[in-house]
Structures are given as structure tokens and as C-alpha cells.
Design a protein around this nucleic acid. Structure first.
Lengths: 103, 103
DNA sequence: TGAATAATGAACAAGCGTGATCTGATCGAT
DNA sequence: ATCGATCAGATCACGCTTGTTCATTATTCA
């Protein structure tokens, strides 16, 4: 599924494809900007987008076999939430219901 | 940043907080459903949400220290895209602009 | 109010990084 | 809405590194 299909699927809920496109872009860009700013986006039930700062480490260039030093690189990290994982495991049928407590 | 802040930030772009709430929920739920269905959501520039099926493996219970067998668990996997990583690294200033080709 | 998230701890296993290329995706034009 | 051009993404490889998972409790989010 690509972005077009995603927008098309959402347009069925928002009613308009143009609005869906704007909505998707707004959400994605907002998350990107927030994570880039260092603020982690914690969404209960979905997951957490956070900026993971990785220190320099020793990697290797498989083409040459030479060990190279990789500088600090901040990469976006996503940790799926409980509902998301449960949904993928097939334990639930619909998201955002949160009414099933298996404890 | 929580979901409230995210919605608030998006409402500044869509103009309405209610629309922003619907948009965020629609996007997130759609992604969850798609990933749960096995279809990976590939969005160029942002990342790829896909369903990673991990086979059973041996884990440990930190409370008791006993090794236990974990059954197959399908967890959602997110792989950040090039633009997202570049943005987090501070190489770019704004997402979805795609006008900066450094190549 | 109710429920989800964060942190801890240790061992196992997979990932990562560079880099070119092909395919797929995305954006714009008609 | 569809077609076309352009660009991002995946792959493969080797050796070291990091991540990940389990469970419990308090706090904070919805």
C-alpha cells in the first residue's frame, strides 16, 4: 500500500480526497518536524515516535572491508504501542476501541 | 508531545481542531488496520510500516531469571525514510519540500 | 476514571553501513 | 484521472554492535 491508497482509504472517512491528502501530509509533516525538534511524539495506543541519538560507532565498509568511524547520527525511532501490537497479533478487530482488557 | 499537542499543532494547518482530531484518528487507524492486514504501508520520504513476523525464540524473565519460550509474535515495524532521517539529522529545514536535491 | 507507558536487566539474534543499480513510488502535466 | 519523468527504496556482503523481549508497578494520558 502506498500513499495514494492510504489517502484513498482515508478519504472514505473524511469524505473528500483533497481533505484526506491535506490531512495525511499535515500529520506526517507535523510528526517529522516534532521528532526533528527533539520532542518525542507519544500517542497512546499507536506508538511513540522519538529521536534516538546514536553515538559514533565502528562500522565496516563491506565493499572494501575497511573499518570506518561513523559519526553521531540521530535517527527517528518508532516504538509500537500496546493496541497496535495487539491488533497486528490479531487479538483485536478494530483499533481505537480500547475496551478489551485481557488482564 | 502527546496526541493532544499533535492535534493542536495540526489544527493550525487544517484550521479546525475537530477536523484535525478526525484526521489524526483516521490516519492512525487506517495505518493500523492496513498493517494488521499484512499490507505494508510504504510512504516515500516518511517511512514504511510493515508487519514483521518474528518466530518463537528464547527470552528471559528478569524477575526470576528463568528462560522462557516466546511464541510467534507479529509486531509492527517502522522503517524511517531518507527524508525523515535527513530531517532528524538536521540536514533539512522542512519536510515535503523535496526541492532540495543535494545529489 | 481507566488504562497505557516507562524503566529495569541480561542473553540471544538480527541489524547495520557503504554504494550502485533496478524497480517502484511520487508528483506534476495533460 | 492517467501517463511520464524523476527520485527514493531495496538489495547484498562482512564483521561488530545494538536492539529486543519478558514482567511489574507508579504515573500520566485519554
Amino acid at each position: 500500500m502506498n500513499k495514494r491508497d492510504l489517502i484513498d482509504a482515508i478519504s472514505g472517512r473524511l469524505g473528500d480526497k483533497k481533505s484526506a491528502t491535506e490531512a495525511v501530509n499535515a500529520v506526517l509533516e507535523t510528526i517529522q518536524t516534532a521528532v526533528a525538534s527533539g520532542d518525542k511524539v507519544a500517542i497512546t495506543g499507536f506508538g511513540v515516535f522519538e529521536k534516538a541519538e546514536r553515538p559514533a560507532r565502528t562500522a565496516r565498509n563491506p565493499a572494501t572491508g575497511a573499518t570506518i568511524q561513523v559519526p553521531e547520527s540521530s535517527v527517528p525511532k518508532f516504538r509500537p504501542g500496546a493496541d497496535f501490537k495487539a491488533l497486528v497479533n490479531g487479538e483485536k478487530g478494530a483499533p481505537a476501541k480500547a475496551g478489551s482488557r485481557k488482564k
